[in-house]
Simulated assay, not measured.
Amino acid sequence: MPRAGLSQQSVLDAALAVVDEAGAAGLTLAAVAARTGVAVPSLYKHVDGLPALRRKATVAVLDEFTAYVTAAVLGHSGPTALARFLYAYREFSRTYPGRYQLTVPADDLGDPAVAEAGRRAVGVAFAVLEGAGITGEDAVHATRCLRAAVHGFVMLEISGGFGLPESIDESFERLVGMLVASVFPDSAPH
């Protein structure tokens, strides 16, 4: 019989709290069980093991990320929308560094739910790029370039990889300026 108060959602919430505290690598059934006050075998009444829990957490985080960047770009278009998307991307990763690690679900891409959540996240970038006339295969390549640039920056930032005293915020502003100018070349100041 499942423990009163324990549900699939409460197990997922506990898993996300573990990820917030210990990063994606810290997500174990033992950590979730400790957080929920049950023995590990009790979790199996609510989730089919660690891989299934990780996939559920990945989908939840990708959807959270999608909502975050969507809220940032809603009502905006063109260069402003792209800049807002990039700033929101960075803000999400800085606010939720453990969860952000789950947005790179290389092992889970074969899972249909994870793949669909990834498509929803990428869809926001595609919509922004469409404002620059970038669609289809070109949108895929542009999205990969944008993601690589911002992901690299934020991973260096959240891991303490920027050791020089100059402003990290200013460096990110310059990166955003470069990326926006590359997508919307006519918008760059002359």
Results as ranks from 00 to 15, higher is better:
Ala25Tyr: 02
Gly75Ser: 07
Ser77Lys: 02
Thr80Phe: 04
Val61Cys: 05
Leu74Asp: 15
Asp48Ala: 15
Leu27Phe: 04
Glu91Ala: 13
Tyr89Asn: 10
Pro41Asn: 09
Pro41Lys: 00
Thr70Ala: 14
Gly78Ala: 03
Arg55Asp: 13
Ala31Cys: 09
Glu64Asp: 15
Thr80Pro: 00
Ala60Glu: 05
Ala25Cys: 02
Val69Lys: 05
Pro41Leu: 02
Lys45Phe: 05
Arg84Lys: 12
Ala34Phe: 01
Leu50Glu: 07
Leu74Asn: 11
Leu27Ile: 10
Leu82Thr: 00
Leu43Thr: 10
Val47Arg: 05
Arg84Ala: 12
Ala33Pro: 14
Ala31Lys: 08
Pro79Gly: 02
Thr36Val: 15
Asp63Tyr: 00
Val73Phe: 06
Thr80Glu: 12
Asp63Gly: 02
Gly49Gln: 02
Leu74Glu: 15
Arg55Val: 11
Phe65Asp: 07
Val73Ser: 07
Ala57His: 09
Thr28Phe: 09
Pro41Ile: 12
Leu53Ile: 13
Leu29Glu: 09
His46Ser: 12
Lys45Asp: 07
Asp63Pro: 03
Arg35Trp: 07
His46Thr: 07
Val47Lys: 07
Val59Lys: 01
Val47Gln: 03
Thr28Pro: 05
Val61Gly: 10
Val38Gly: 11
Gly49Ala: 08
Thr28Glu: 02
Lys45Glu: 13
Gly37His: 11
Glu91Cys: 04
Ala88Ser: 08
Arg35Phe: 04
Gly26Ser: 03
Val32Met: 04
Ala33Gln: 08
Pro41Ser: 06
Ala31Gly: 08
Pro51Tyr: 01
Ala31Gln: 03
Val73Lys: 10
Pro51Gly: 09
Ala34Val: 10
His76Thr: 13
Ala67Pro: 06
Thr66Ala: 13
Arg54Ile: 06
Leu74Cys: 03
Arg90Met: 07
Leu29Thr: 01
Val61Gln: 01
Ala39Leu: 13
Ala39Thr: 13
Phe85Ala: 06
Leu82Trp: 05
Val69His: 05
Val59Ala: 01
Leu50Phe: 02
Arg90Asn: 06
Ala81Gln: 09
Phe65Lys: 11
Thr80His: 04
Ala83His: 02
Ala72Phe: 11
Ser42Thr: 15
Val73Ile: 14
Gly37Pro: 12
Phe92Met: 13
Thr58Met: 08
Pro41Trp: 05
Val73Cys: 03
Val73Glu: 08
Val59Asp: 04
Tyr44Thr: 11
Ser77Gly: 15
Arg84His: 11
Thr70Ser: 15
Ala88Phe: 05
Ser77Gln: 12
Glu64Cys: 03
His76Leu: 15
Val69Trp: 09
Glu91Phe: 01
Arg84Leu: 15
Asp63Trp: 00
Ala60Val: 01
His76Asp: 14
Arg35Ala: 13
Ala31Ile: 10
Ser42Leu: 10
Ala57Asp: 06
Ala72Ser: 14
Tyr89Arg: 11
Ala52Cys: 07
Leu27Asn: 06
Gly37Trp: 12
Asp48His: 14
Leu27Cys: 05
Gly26Leu: 04
